[in-house]
Simulated assay, not measured.
Amino acid sequence: MIRSIVSTAVAGLAGFTATKAVLRSRLRTHESVVRTNHAGHDVSLAEGPAVATGLLAGSLLIEDPRQRTATLLATAAAGSLGAVDDFCESGSSKGLRGHLSALARGEITTGTIKVTGIPLASIAAAAILRSRTRPAGFFRFSQKEDRPWFAAVADVIVTGGVIAGSANLFNLLDLRPGRALKAGALTLAFTDHERRVSWAPSGAIAGVTAAAWPDDLAGDAMLGDTGANALGAAIGVILAETATPAQRRLILAVLAGLTLASEKVSFTSVIESTPGLREIDSFGREVV
């Protein structure tokens, strides 16, 4: 118990420190990371690399080796592929349907690379997570799982879908200052933390969120694909680890439904027209 508490605190501190270090570096003001946001103001994309760095630093403190490896893989891949789309963008296709349509035409864009690369990395991370034997206690595994191979493969695919779907959803939410960070905090607040496997990664995310919060809410910096994908992937691993197989299937169904809905419906319009969501979304925001 004491070891887990200490690991969680250190993970939070590591995430906070690493994120702040990148945000305060020269990268923040470099012309290559400056973009124009929805309100027509200059905003720095340095928050994305800062958040990804903080998440990776904090994830090093995860006690379980498989979860640590899976989290580092999923977060690094999602952040790196998001950075490719942020800083080397090619093609005019937008959204999941647009990227897949471009791929069907034989057009390889940075967005296409991202929407194919993140699922592949997520399945690899899921294979690491699901390679466990049956739990015999916290951080101890003794019995092999007794189930058909096709059930194990299906669980890996579902788990990978949860990780990739979460990465994509948080990217879709990063359209207004603070929205993705708030969604992450609320997700963690309603996640089952009874198992200690969620403590250290949640601590890392909390530290990163605290570090990025002021600049994000002020509209001075934004997550971009780099930070939003990395944050979503890290949260996806937590959800995959703390949920039962049935819950993972439900989570995947919800993520898939929201992704498909985003092709037809504006999340911003829905949020702004829904009491409660509107107030949460605008809370603390200096730029609208």
Rank of each mutant, 00 (worst) to 15 (best):
Glu279Thr: 13
Glu194Gln: 14
Leu260Ile: 13
Ala228Glu: 05
Thr191Gln: 08
Asp216Glu: 07
Ser198Tyr: 00
Pro201His: 05
Gly161Pro: 00
Ala206Met: 09
Ala185Gly: 12
Gln247Ile: 10
Asn171Arg: 11
Trp199Glu: 05
Thr226Phe: 06
Gly160Gln: 10
Asp220Pro: 04
Ser282Met: 14
Arg176Pro: 10
Leu223Ile: 09
Ser202Gln: 04
Ala256Pro: 01
Gly257Asn: 00
Phe267Asn: 04
Ser262Pro: 00
Asn171Val: 11
Val208Leu: 10
Leu173Asp: 03
Thr274Cys: 15
Ala200Lys: 12
Phe190Cys: 15
Ser282Asn: 14
Leu252His: 07
Val208Met: 12
Gly219Ala: 04
Thr274Met: 15
Arg278Ile: 03
Leu175Trp: 01
Thr209Gln: 06
Arg196His: 11
Asp216Arg: 02
Ala167Leu: 01
Ser262Met: 01
Ala164Met: 03
Ser266Arg: 09
Thr187His: 12
Thr244Pro: 06
Ala206Gly: 04
Leu223Gly: 11
Asp174Leu: 04
Arg179Val: 09
Arg248Phe: 04
Thr242Pro: 07
Ala183Tyr: 11
Val254Trp: 09
Asn229Cys: 05
Trp213Gly: 01
Asp281Gln: 07
Asp174Gln: 01
Thr244Met: 09
Ser166Asn: 15
Ile238Gln: 05
Gly232His: 03
Thr259Val: 06
Arg195Met: 01
Lys182Ile: 12
Gly284Phe: 02
Phe170His: 14
Ala211Ser: 05
Lys264Gln: 13
Phe267His: 06
Leu239Gln: 07
Val237Ala: 04
Ala200Trp: 10
Thr209Leu: 10
Thr209Met: 11
Ala218Phe: 02
Arg176Ala: 14
Val197Tyr: 08
Gln247Thr: 14
Ile163Gln: 06
Ser262Ala: 10
Phe170Gly: 03
Leu186Trp: 15
Leu277Gly: 11
Gly161Val: 00
